[in-house]
Amino acid sequence: MQSYTYLIIDLCCISIPFIASFYPKHAFYKEWKPFFLANIIVGFFFLVWDADFTLNGIWGFNPDYVIGLNIFNLPIEEVLFFVSIPYACVFTYFSLKYLVQNNPLVTFQKIISILFILILLLVGIMSLDKWYTSITSLITAVYLIFQVIRKRDLSYQYLSYLIVLPFFFVSNGILTGSFLESPIVWYNDAENLGIRLFTIPVEDIFYGMLLIFLNIDLYEFFKSKFLNN
């Protein structure tokens, strides 16, 4: 069973959102077309990024916790990660848009974005010798700058990510070694700040945020296209 550990984590992350997607009064399965179109595009970008970092030893995977089926140099479980996590998070966003009519973060979302931009630019520029830190920080900063220029309201994205963060700490904590003899995903600390939240590199917070926000953005883009046709 040990070799199925990563696969089980993927399935646990997506199982409840998948089942809840068929709730008759507000069914997310009807949104699958815009979601999966978005997910394919964002997933491809992240898989190329992931494969390159794996090839260059910035991170890697413990063969004891995967079934041994690879796509290029990535375990199939890692590929599924980029479907299961976005699915769960976009489902959360979809649900919150329906359940939360008055988002408490609306007033502060621009300030949050600007603070993140300043911090990420500073960290990214000061850490150019650390690939994971610099690339994650700078790409996320550029993304947020673009959203601020567009005057895009990110309040529901921030709220959704805040809601899923406890689950992120559990799932990503296990992946990075919590409750296990060794991590499923290991990191080369020469390429990051070496700051851990429990066992999770702090960079994962913004890597995950970028992954989710891009999925939500493209999901909303394709959804609007289908509604207008």
Score class of each variant (00 low, 15 high):
residue 82 F to G: 10
residue 44 F to A: 15
residue 45 F to D: 09
residue 36 F to R: 04
residue 90 V to C: 06
residue 57 G to Q: 00
residue 78 E to S: 06
residue 96 L to Y: 00
residue 73 N to C: 03
residue 93 Y to M: 02
residue 76 I to L: 14
residue 83 V to R: 02
residue 85 I to G: 04
residue 84 S to C: 13
residue 72 F to P: 09
residue 91 F to L: 07
residue 54 T to D: 10
residue 78 E to N: 11
residue 96 L to G: 01
residue 42 V to G: 08
residue 93 Y to S: 05
residue 93 Y to G: 03
residue 47 L to A: 13
residue 65 Y to Q: 12
residue 89 C to E: 04
residue 63 P to H: 02
residue 77 E to M: 02
residue 48 V to I: 15
residue 88 A to N: 01
residue 96 L to V: 00
residue 36 F to V: 04
residue 40 I to S: 13
residue 67 I to D: 13
residue 81 F to V: 03
residue 60 G to T: 04
residue 42 V to D: 10
residue 41 I to F: 14
residue 76 I to R: 06
residue 70 N to C: 12
residue 56 N to T: 11
residue 76 I to V: 14
residue 88 A to L: 02
residue 83 V to N: 07
residue 40 I to N: 09
residue 76 I to G: 08
residue 36 F to P: 04
residue 67 I to N: 06
residue 44 F to E: 08
residue 38 A to W: 07
residue 62 N to I: 09
residue 81 F to L: 10
residue 49 W to I: 10
residue 52 D to Q: 13
residue 91 F to Q: 07
residue 91 F to A: 07
residue 52 D to A: 14
residue 49 W to R: 08
residue 48 V to Y: 14
residue 70 N to L: 11
residue 91 F to G: 06
residue 66 V to Y: 03
residue 49 W to P: 09
residue 69 L to E: 09
residue 96 L to R: 01
residue 45 F to I: 15
residue 37 L to Y: 14
residue 82 F to M: 03
residue 56 N to K: 15
residue 91 F to W: 13
residue 79 V to Q: 05
residue 55 L to V: 06
residue 60 G to I: 06
residue 61 F to D: 04
residue 56 N to A: 02
residue 48 V to H: 14
residue 72 F to N: 11
residue 88 A to H: 01
residue 44 F to I: 15
residue 39 N to H: 08
residue 58 I to L: 15
residue 37 L to A: 11
residue 57 G to R: 00
residue 90 V to I: 08
residue 47 L to S: 12
residue 85 I to F: 06
residue 64 D to S: 12
residue 46 F to S: 09
residue 86 P to I: 01
residue 94 F to C: 02
residue 49 W to A: 07
residue 64 D to R: 12
residue 58 I to H: 14
residue 83 V to D: 03
residue 56 N to V: 01
residue 48 V to P: 09
residue 68 G to F: 03
residue 50 D to M: 06
residue 72 F to L: 15
residue 90 V to D: 04
residue 72 F to Y: 15
residue 54 T to Q: 11
residue 76 I to Y: 05
residue 69 L to F: 13
residue 68 G to P: 01
residue 55 L to M: 09
residue 40 I to H: 12
residue 78 E to G: 07
residue 45 F to Q: 09
residue 74 L to M: 02
residue 77 E to D: 03
residue 80 L to H: 02
residue 87 Y to G: 08
residue 62 N to A: 04
residue 74 L to N: 02
residue 92 T to M: 06
residue 37 L to M: 15
residue 58 I to T: 13
residue 77 E to Y: 01
residue 65 Y to R: 11
residue 57 G to V: 00
residue 87 Y to F: 14
residue 61 F to R: 06
residue 94 F to N: 02
residue 80 L to F: 13
residue 59 W to L: 05
residue 84 S to L: 01
residue 86 P to R: 04
residue 85 I to A: 07
residue 94 F to D: 03
residue 38 A to S: 15
residue 39 N to E: 13
residue 87 Y to D: 10
residue 87 Y to N: 10
